[in-house]
Amino acid sequence: MKAKAETPDSSSAADIFKWIVAFVLLAAAVVGNHVYSEMSVVLRVAGVVVLIAAALGIAATTTKGKAAITFARESRMEIRKVVWPTRQETMQTTLIVLAVSIVMALILWGVDGIMVRLVALATGV
């Protein structure tokens, strides 16, 4: 991953304007969905989807948006490198965790019972 320090430049004002436009589009989607509640659900959903897509498209052109897209692409490449366990390994590990959890629950239950009896013996209750 490329790490570089953020430097303020002339595009920061343009980025701020783009973020404002993106948030206005998202607000328009929410308000429009409420104001036009008597319209067909299909039309309202289509309008909301179009406005959200437009907002995401505008946000993707900002510096932070481009960084987020780059991060998502790099993350996807890293996920492809992961060696996932087989079904048998997953089942074995799950059964081991289940068995250890049951054994620990029984041990804690026994310790709790002993402590309750000791406290009852000490307090005379």
Score class of each variant (00 low, 15 high):
I114E: 07
D9A: 11
M77K: 15
M115T: 14
Q88E: 15
R76I: 10
V50E: 01
T62W: 02
G32S: 07
R80E: 13
W19V: 03
A67L: 13
I16A: 15
I114R: 07
A53R: 04
A3P: 02
A5S: 11
V50F: 07
V97K: 13
A22L: 02
A3C: 04
T86D: 13
K81V: 06
V100F: 08
K4N: 08
I58E: 01
V24N: 04
R80I: 13
L25V: 00
L43C: 08
V97D: 06
R44M: 02
V41A: 14
V50R: 02
W109Y: 14
A68E: 05
I79E: 10
L26D: 01
I114G: 06
I52Y: 03
A28P: 00
P85R: 01
V45P: 00
L51S: 03
S101L: 15
L26H: 02
D112H: 14
V41M: 14
V119S: 04
V30Q: 06
K66Y: 01
A68L: 13
A28L: 11
R73L: 11
A28R: 01
T70C: 04
G110S: 08
E78M: 15
V100E: 05
S40L: 12
L108T: 10
G57T: 03
L56M: 11
L56K: 03
W109Q: 10
E6R: 14
K4Y: 09
R76L: 14
G57E: 01
V49A: 11
M77V: 05
R117K: 15
R80C: 12
V31Y: 06
E89M: 05
L95G: 01
L43P: 00
M104C: 12
F23H: 09
I79A: 15
K4M: 13
A46G: 11
G65C: 04
I16G: 10
L56T: 04
L98F: 12
A27N: 04
I96H: 08
P8Y: 09
A53C: 12
V83Y: 05
M39I: 07
G65W: 00
